[in-house]
């Protein structure tokens, strides 16, 4: 057997594997990599059948891999008949695309004029110091990526830091350490009362109006929503966080990603269905009545984050 050092970097499937994470951790040579031979062509084919605009496809690929692997760009260029140099040009033009693997959490520090005069530079350097990386890089453990952006459009609240889509306003350099800790523990633990985007909802069944809340069972420190689901031949309970904006859940069975669930009221056993089409994936959404008026709609596809609150 070859020593680990020798085999690193040997892959017979694709020649440009500098960004391949699989190769990096491989303990033996890769002779046939289905990621690049089967998965990527399939993925691109799939995305292309839904969408035929370059930027939309790049966004989808980025959502899938968290970055844009070189091979996918080549595949896209070949299938869309757009020269690779143009695909590459677009991918490097927009800041939201990344050609390097990004960490689990993305931290964007705004350095726009308004944030800058309020000391965003100090915040950015503090992040760099704490994470021991430069802006634009990812920590070696692939937990955090740090980037600076030029304006997030919330100048009055500056300095603004966005972590995984959550906005934090008036950030000071001394708050950085705490923010990083909170993020690595999971954003669900962040002080919910302070964050306007996350708030609890109390829901009931639209047919029998029986409450769907399970007070004795807590998710995210709040009573959870308890419903029954079925998929394939399985049937069981499903509990999801009642925090609007949180996607934490517990389930009796393990549910594979992308499965479409049929959701039922545990009391009257009606299927809860008949909402709008999900803004993200067009699946018909599930409707529940919000106490205090209005409805909330959630997408029943596992992994999809589509949800609408209608008050």
């Amino acid at each position: 057997m070859l020593a680990k050092k020798e085999v690193q970097g040997i892959c017979t499937t694709c020649r440009h594997a500098s960004t391949c994470t699989r190769l990096k951790f491989a303990t033996e040579p890769i002779w046939h990599c289905d990621e690049f031979e089967v998965k990527i062509p399939n993925l691109v084919e799939n995305l292309l059948s839904k969408n035929n605009k370059l930027i939309a496809i790049l966004e989808d690929v980025q959502n899938y891999y968290n970055y844009l692997p070189e091979e996918t760009l080549k595949e896209i260029s070949g299938r869309m008949k757009i020269p690779l140099k143009d695909v590459y040009g677009v991918a490097t033009f927009y800041k939201s695309f990344s050609l390097k693997p990004r960490g689990k959490h993305l931290i964007s520090v705004c350095l726009g004029t308004a944030c800058h005069v309020r000391g965003a530079q100090a915040v950015a350097s503090e992040f760099e110091k704490q994470l021991e990386i430069k802006a634009g890089d990812t920590t070696p453990d692939k937990e955090f990526s740090l980037e600076t952006v030029n304006c997030l459009g919330a100048c009055a609240l500056g300095p603004i830091v966005v972590i995984d889509g959550e906005y934090f306003s008036s950030v000071k350099a001394r708050m950085v350490k705490q923010l990083i800790n909170e993020v690595s523990e999971g954003l669900g633990k962040i002080d919910i009362k302070k964050d306007q985007r996350i708030f609890p909802v109390e829901v009931s069944c639209p047919r029998c109006n029986h409450t769907l809340m399970k007070l004795e069972h807590l998710i995210d420190n709040y009573p959870c929503i308890h419903i029954t689901v079925s998929f394939g031949r399985k049937h069981g309970w499903y509990r999801l966080s009642s925090l609007y904006g949180s996607f934490n859940f517990e389930s009796e069975h393990e549910i594979p990603l992308d499965t479409k669930l049929n959701i039922f009221c545990p009391h009257c056993h009606t299927e809860l269905i008949g909402g709008y089409a999900c803004p993200e994936c067009r699946t018909t959404m599930v409707t529940m009545i919000v106490r205090g008026g209005g409805t909330v709609q959630v997408c029943p596809r596992r992994g999809c984050k589509g949800h609408i609150l209608d008050i």
Partner: peptide
């Protein structure tokens, strides 16, 4: 079509 503009 071997070379093109990159970045911004």
């Amino acid at each position: 079509s071997a070379i093109g503009f990159a970045n911004r």
